[in-house]
Amino acid sequence: MFKHYTMNQVILPLDLEIKLQENDIAYTVNELVESIPEEAFDRFLRDTGCPAYHPRMMMKIILCAYTQSVFSGRKIE
């Protein structure tokens, strides 16, 4: 079981000056990861322990960091 997340969730107030441009690489990464079938993530499911973050979300974070030449886990954090 994974923790539930959606790309449309907004909790904090957003500054309208900080927007992604329409041609930003983040949109491409999002489309790429969302195109992966759900069955590819089935092997990461566990029934015990605390629910993990969804592998899709983690993959998006890592790929976006890699596109910015950030390869260290500590810098990604």
Results as ranks from 00 to 15, higher is better:
A52E: 10
A52V: 00
R46I: 09
R74G: 10
G73V: 07
I62R: 14
R74H: 07
F44S: 04
N30I: 13
Y27N: 03
T28K: 09
L32E: 11
P51W: 04
D47Q: 02
E31V: 00
L63F: 09
Q68M: 12
K3T: 02
I76K: 03
P51N: 08
E38W: 01
R56L: 03
Q21V: 10
I11Y: 00
E38N: 10
R46W: 04
K3W: 03
P51L: 04
G73N: 07
L45S: 10
L14V: 09
Q9S: 10
D15F: 00
D42K: 14
E17C: 10
P13G: 07
T6L: 03
D42H: 11
F41Y: 14
V29F: 03
G73R: 01
N23L: 02
G49R: 02
I25F: 12
P37M: 10
D47H: 09
V70P: 01
Y27Q: 05
A40L: 12
T67K: 10
M1H: 10
I61V: 15
C50M: 15
P37Y: 07
L63N: 06
T6E: 14
L14R: 13
R74L: 06
N23D: 14
K75N: 14
F41V: 00
L20A: 12
V70S: 05
M57Q: 08
Q68F: 05
T48P: 01
S35Q: 04
L14Q: 13
M58Y: 04
Q68S: 07
M1I: 13
P13H: 00
R56M: 15
S69G: 06
I36M: 06
E38C: 02
Y66W: 11
L16F: 09
N23I: 02
Q21N: 11
L14N: 05
P51I: 01
S69F: 04
E34P: 01
F41P: 00
E34F: 14
N8G: 06
I61G: 05
E22A: 13
V70A: 07
F2A: 09
Q21F: 03
N30W: 03
P51R: 11
C50Y: 15
Y66Q: 01
I25E: 08
V29Q: 04
V10N: 05
E31M: 11
M7E: 09
F44V: 03
H4N: 12
E31P: 00
Y66T: 01
Y66F: 07
E77F: 03
P37K: 03
H54C: 02
C64I: 09
C50P: 05
Q9K: 04
K75C: 13
F41A: 01
N23V: 01
V33D: 15
M57F: 14
A52Y: 05
F2Y: 12
M1C: 10
Y27A: 06
H4D: 13
R46N: 12
M59F: 12
N30L: 15
N8Y: 06
D47G: 13
K60R: 11
P37N: 13
I11F: 04
T6Q: 12
Y27R: 05
E31W: 07
K60W: 09
N30T: 07
R74K: 12
D47M: 08
C64T: 02
K75G: 00
Q9R: 00
E39T: 05
N23M: 01
